[in-house]
Design a protein around this nucleic acid. Structure first.
Lengths: 150, 150
DNA sequence: TAATATTTAATCTCGTGCGATTGATTGTAG
DNA sequence: CTACAATCAATCGCACGAGATTAAATATTA
């Protein structure tokens, strides 16, 4: 008896393992990020700030696929921790400029070992990691093109 | 000049595209799930209920990698919508048994076209989808084994 | 220039998610 | 049998994340 393929079964979903995997990875980061007093979203925000030093909220959002409703409170928390500074642009008062502080730059040193420690947790072969990376960005590209905004 | 590989750059992360991709996919589901008056998490919960008809909260959580702090309010919302029923087990009063209702079963018909419509959005080649599926479950397996609970 | 449209960060509401705790129930060991 | 441990769902606090709206500033157009 052939069992018909059921597209509404959880095990036949491609999106569910993606959703679950993302959650489990964020969970895996937690012990390492706790040492830095950062959540995962704050961590990737700091990554963007470490690289660019100074960005408008809009630009941070473009890198992270997040909008101001998420970023505004998050950046305020990072400001409270002393890792970033927030000020209005003088050229265009609509823009809020986020810049890295010395403490923020210093935090980068503490974070240096995080990627390797996380990678050790995930134990993914380089070949598969590369394929995964390519496929994920392909999907992101397809979806964000359709949804506009990015 | 060789540019040194920087593991703290966003573009060198494997976890970030996973996180971003999961979010974009949930966003892509939205228009289709709006028709069913379900969020994504409610949708996958219904998927589990369509398949198993009756489960303890603990078991639902085992399938979805969620615990009662997320599921209890979510299941109450599904109960309000009339898609599931909640009752205490008589054999073990600690267990709460979730069961699908007729309205919940009927909803499955309305949901039938969702997977195909979403797949059309994502536009992923079957070969890549299969690899992605395998890799994601491999990672989930590695992480959940380490983190216990599952 | 004056009215209108656009852009931007911020705010509000709702629904997850997670860690930690609580309280009730059941299982277990002395 | 009784103290103790384990197992549940539920609750609480906090931090996202998205959609919708707001208010201010800037750009565009009539």
């Amino acid at each position: 008896m052939a069992v018909p393929f059921d597209p509404l079964k959880l095990e036949n979903q491609i999106c569910f393992p993606l959703y679950a995997c993302a959650k489990e990875i964020v969970k895996a980061y937690k012990p390492y990020l706790d040492e830095l007093d950062l959540t995962y979203t704050q961590y990737i925000t700091m990554m963007v700030m470490w690289e660019h030093k100074e960005l408008r909220v809009k630009e941070v959002g473009k890198y992270l696929y997040l909008d101001s409703s998420t970023l505004t409170p998050l950046l305020k928390r990072l400001e409270e921790k002393g890792y970033v500074a927030r000020r209005r642009s003088t050229e265009d008062e609509r823009d809020l400029i986020v810049s890295i502080t010395d403490a923020g730059t210093a935090l980068r040193e503490k974070a240096r070992t995080v990627p390797a420690r996380l990678a050790a947790c995930v134990e993914l072969e380089p070949q598969k990691a590369a394929e995964l990376y390519q496929t994920l960005y392909q999907i992101i590209g397809t979806l964000t093109k359709k949804q506009g905004k990015f």
